[in-house]
Measured scan of single mutants.
Amino acid sequence: MEVRTIKVFTTVDNINLHTQVVDMSMTYGQQFGPTYLDGADVTKIKPHNSHEGKTFYVLPNDDTLRVEAFEYYHTTDPSFLGRYMSALNHTKKWKYPQVNGLTSIKWADNNCYLATALLTLQQIELKFNPPALQDAYYRARAGEAANFCALILAYCNKTVGELGDVRETMSYLFQHANLDSCKRVLNVVCKTCGQQQTTLKGVEAVMYMGTLSYEQFKKGVQIPCTCGKQATKYLVQQESPFVMMSAPPAQYELKHGTFTCASEYTGNYQCGHYKHITSKETLYCIDGALLTKSSEYKGPITDVFYKENSYTTTIK
């Protein structure tokens, strides 16, 4: 009895394709271990004539594949690729409408935090270190965002349907971005203890939790000093293409032309909904596939993004 075979390709990165001759009487799992086709788990399936010449994702289970996976995804987590594939199996079914010149995501599976993050990423200057993220990001900007969303979920250790947080998501993504040249110098002034300067680099240099107003941050924000008295913390120097200011959701007025974009969060910790506000020729609110415009805006804002380049204080 002759062994019926077909020729397929296996890959971990969709760049390096490895030619395989597979036995049609055995499952993919018996031949390769966990195997995925377009995100779908085909591990328990036997090869079919229609699979001839198709590319299958496999887990990096030998040295060659491990090197290829690390170079593309910059992670050695053995569960990463499987999590990416199972997320992709959902995100490829989502709709990605162009809204006001940006790629958004039609609401499904509690994905409003991903839509808000995706919209924000198209408006701030950011370059990702893992080629996987950078490639998928370019495709997302062009309207094909399924891979990018699935990668975000995998890097953030999230599953489809789980509630997510924009600030946490951005923080994970910033860790995989090139923020080497970003720098922030802060000064804390206390009447009792004097003053202390701190220099922050990388992710810490672009994120701040405690106030939404970048102007206020430049002037000074009140913080408790270690001595128990009130101290003032203010920005001395900022070198970065953008800054992200966050605070627990509270009524906040966004003035046209003073910011790049913002995240609105309605609801409580267990259950809520994100919308995205962007400042173009007027203010726009993007909620999944829905767009509304207004000249002014007041609502429960939790993150505001500002364009920056270089700032030095005039406070002496």
Score class of each variant (00 low, 15 high):
Q222K: 11
L17V: 08
L65W: 07
L59T: 12
Q238D: 02
R83Q: 08
Y311G: 08
H48W: 12
T211G: 08
A150M: 02
L153Y: 12
G288T: 03
F128K: 03
G101V: 02
G272V: 00
R139W: 10
V185D: 01
L126G: 02
K255A: 10
C112R: 04
P300T: 11
A262Q: 00
K293Y: 11
Y306M: 01
D41A: 13
V22F: 07
I6Y: 10
K158E: 00
S240R: 00
N178F: 05
A145Q: 02
F305M: 05
T169R: 02
T169D: 02
F174S: 02
N100L: 06
V243Y: 01
S294E: 10
K219C: 10
D303V: 02
V189E: 15
K201L: 13
K233P: 01
G299R: 06
S246E: 02
G29S: 08
T312S: 11
L59S: 12
N268M: 07
E52D: 12
N157Y: 06
T211E: 15
N111P: 05
I124M: 06
C227S: 02
L126H: 04
T76F: 13
N187S: 13
F9T: 09
K219Q: 14
S213A: 05
T232Y: 10
T312W: 08
V8G: 05
D63T: 11
Q216C: 09
V189C: 13
E162L: 00
P97M: 15
A40K: 13
R167W: 03
R139T: 11
M209T: 14
F70A: 14
N147G: 11
T198E: 14
G220F: 02
T64E: 13
Y57I: 11
K44T: 15
G272A: 01
A247Q: 07
N309Y: 09
D287R: 01
E239M: 11
S294T: 14
Q195M: 14
T232Q: 08
E239D: 09
G53K: 13
N16P: 04
A87C: 09
D165T: 02
M170A: 02
Y36I: 04
P300A: 11
T302K: 01
V304C: 02
G210E: 02
A205E: 01
V12I: 12
P60Y: 06
C190I: 03
K280T: 10
E71C: 10
P47Y: 05
T282P: 00
A145G: 13
Q238N: 02
T103Y: 14
K191E: 15
L114E: 04
N110S: 05
T64D: 12
A69I: 11
Q122V: 04
